[in-house]
Design a protein around this nucleic acid. Structure first.
Length: 267
DNA sequence: CGGCATGTTGCGCA
DNA sequence: TTGCGCAACATGCC
């Protein structure tokens, strides 16, 4: 489910379900998800508390409680939050549940995650995974000068974009789409980009995020995704009809157009 | 059966 | 210190 737009949607739903709700009980039996803490702590942290906020930074969610403690949620590759009736049986791959009373109504919010790459971490203060995140492109915007400053090393542009310390929430889909929109070769070394290239990348990342958000709002889910090039190696480029190619960068498949994504942009 | 997948981390090596 | 490349995690899907 993840990539910034999906996580933002999850945040909005959790907010609707949990704000001002009182937790009657919480359950989790999976220490892999709650690491480095124990599942017991997840249950104890939530039980009896009232939820005061649900925030997001990059791909991380933060559920804030009335005593100042909090629970962090990362959806990994396959995590998702769903709401059921309290008496509904556990779903397949259900890993945790938070039962709440809100406005006199009870409901059960379940965390489902087949691959268990997600996280569910209770803490008294913000965890390091959260504090080390870079600016969020949606809520903080993209500072072009900051982005330019991050394009220093010899890593490829795509790897820099996917570094969560540079821009929180940019994953393989958004990075792939954004570089195609900006007409920049994903293999280009970050330090060869000129100011115009960096500006183009910043604009393109924003565009890719907004277009995916719009997709989600229309009820689309990422698999149904209307992408320009992601997952379309071999097909023809929607802009110049050249067959799309793919390379692996930083361990991730990167689709690009050899025809119109110049090795470095202009200037 | 084999290969691929939206994410992150840890390890070995240059 | 930086930056790879790669395996691992656990499961679904084609």
């Amino acid at each position: 489910m993840p990539e910034l737009p999906d996580v933002e949607f999850a945040r909005r739903r959790l907010q609707r379900w949990l704000i001002d709700a009182r937790v009657s009980a919480a359950h989790c039996a999976d220490g892999r998800l709650t690491r480095p803490t124990a599942p017991r702590l997840f249950e104890r942290t939530l039980a009896g508390r009232r939820v005061v906020a649900v925030s997001r930074r990059g791909k991380w969610l933060r559920i804030e409680l009335d005593d100042g403690e909090r629970v962090f949620s990362h959806l990994g590759m396959t995590g998702e939050w769903v709401r059921l009736r309290v008496d509904a049986p556990a779903l397949r791959f259900e890993r945790a549940r938070i039962d709440v009373t809100k406005g006199g109504r009870v409901s059960s919010v379940r965390y489902v995650d087949s691959r268990r790459f997600g996280r569910l971490v209770p803490a008294k203060t913000d965890i390091i995974d959260w504090t080390t995140l870079g600016p969020d492109p949606l809520s903080d915007g993209i500072d072009v000068l900051h982005l330019a400053a991050m394009m220093k090393g010899r890593r490829s542009v795509k790897e820099v974009l996917m570094d969560q310390r540079v821009l929180a929430g940019v994953g393989n889909i958004i990075a792939t789409e954004a570089l195609w929109i900006a007409r920049i070769d994903p293999r280009a070394k970050a330090n060869v980009l000129g100011p115009a290239d960096v500006r183009a990348v910043a604009t393109a990342v924003r565009k890719a995020i907004l277009s995916e958000l719009k997709d989600r709002a229309a009820g689309g889910d990422y698999e149904a995704g209307s992408f320009f090039v992601y997952g379309k190696a071999g097909q023809s480029c929607p802009r110049c009809t050249t067959p799309l190619a793919s390379v692996v960068l930083g361990g991730r498949t990167s689709v690009y157009c050899p025809g119109c994504q110049g090795h470095r942009g202009s200037s």
